[in-house]
Nucleic acid binder design. Structure first.
Lengths: 216, 216
DNA sequence: GGTGGTTCGACCAGATGGTCTAAATCTATC
DNA sequence: GATAGATTTAGACCATCTGGTCGAACCACC
């Protein structure tokens, strides 16, 4: 938690600090990230930084929490559903919002990757990453209840595999960002969802869904 | 490339250096990894380290190349096949060898993760990671030729997604290493393969294969 | 003893995360 | 506007660390 006084800081300065830190933490591991580079980029002094944060870990946790909070507010939740078809339609809608949001947040993917994958930061942001994973896991549990999600593997494993697949496809998209074909970005959520269905859905449902998609 | 004299170094010292470096590079990003910690762990002097390697990047590249080479030699290649069933049976056999090898190499997963995911090391080890990816991609291409692998997505994307799925399931296995149920480790390659088939195979084939697995 | 190879560790310039004193700025009151 | 007190900011400083250099000591061999 930052010092309470951080919330009262002038907004422009607050954003400058958080953005500069997000940039640094998105491109380096926590350990390699440098507070000196952050203050230089943010245009504040060392003393000022430590006036608002206990230490580097406090700053990192604040950046992650802020980014996740912003994403959740912008993306919103998943619409309600009563059957498997409704589940996947609602998830596609969610993926569309996620993709749009991520497209406007160049550092978010790198930040989340750091938070999830850097073995050294579990103590700092583990609560946040666990919360995200738990939310997705619960969502999959609701999918199981309506027959939309397979029930032969642990939900925790499915959630992690889905996150990993999403990460791989996101990076594939980003690497070709400048050479995307017309309509490719708009089609991406649906393409990603099909891959997720492959992994997450009962296989018969995935097959049927794909057959319908191919026919239309 | 290390200095040619490194190959003539006493084997115990050579292994000590490579193992110490592998340990450090497996647990930290390249930038955060410290040559001082490596020499302390290896029991050699700073001057000696730089007598054999140009710099930290040279050491890193050597460690990665050595690890990959060792893995390739121990795991071997994939058996030949003439049809889809043969492809997947041969891949399962390969996964078994991979799993066994990785179980005996605690640092290898972390090392490969560093090599693939650390955006800063592309110039250092990009040739090696590209080669691994290309090998898998070619293998998938041969799978396409016998109808074992789907042909509706780019092979590069499929290879990356498969790597990501493998990484997620590997980590899932490792985190529960001390509480694995009897037979769980032995069954892991087949479980992993089923997930890969979901992503890589034509959906009808994946469904048929799973039905057979469930029946037996 | 001479030569070449190997190893050591002091040294270097620069960087790190965090501390702390003093100056600058802000706010409230008169 | 002046003043006092509170808050914020700057940047020098600190101990420690970094990757890499280099002169000298050590070792093996002839």
């Amino acid at each position: 938690m930052p010092r309470p006084r951080f919330a009262a800081l002038d907004e422009r300065k607050r954003v400058a600090i958080l953005d500069a830190a997000a940039e640094e933490f998105a491109h380096r591991s926590f350990e390699a990230a440098s507070t000196n580079r952050i203050i230089a980029r943010a245009g504040v002094s060392k003393g000022a930084l430590y006036y608002y944060f206990d230490d580097k870990a406090d700053l990192f946790a604040t950046v992650i929490e802020s980014a996740i909070g912003r994403a959740e507010r912008a993306i919103g939740g998943m619409a309600s559903f009563v059957d498997a078809a409704g589940f996947w339609a609602a998830l596609l809608d969610l993926y569309r919002r996620i993709t749009t949001f991520f497209a406007g947040e160049p550092n978010l993917a790198g930040l989340l990757k750091s938070a999830f994958d850097d073995a050294g930061v579990g103590e700092i942001v583990g609560l946040h990453t666990a919360r995200l994973l738990a939310a997705f896991r619960d969502l999959l549990g609701r999918g199981v209840a309506v027959g939309a999600v397979r029930d032969d593997l642990p939900l925790e494993l499915l959630a992690r595999v889905a996150f990993a697949v999403g990460d791989a496809t996101d990076r594939w998209l980003l690497e070709r960002w400048d050479s995307l074909e017309p309509g490719e970005f708009e089609a991406y959520p649906e393409r990603a969802l099909l891959l997720h269905m492959r992994v997450l859905a009962p296989i018969e449902l995935a097959e049927k869904w794909e057959r319908q998609e191919t026919a239309s």
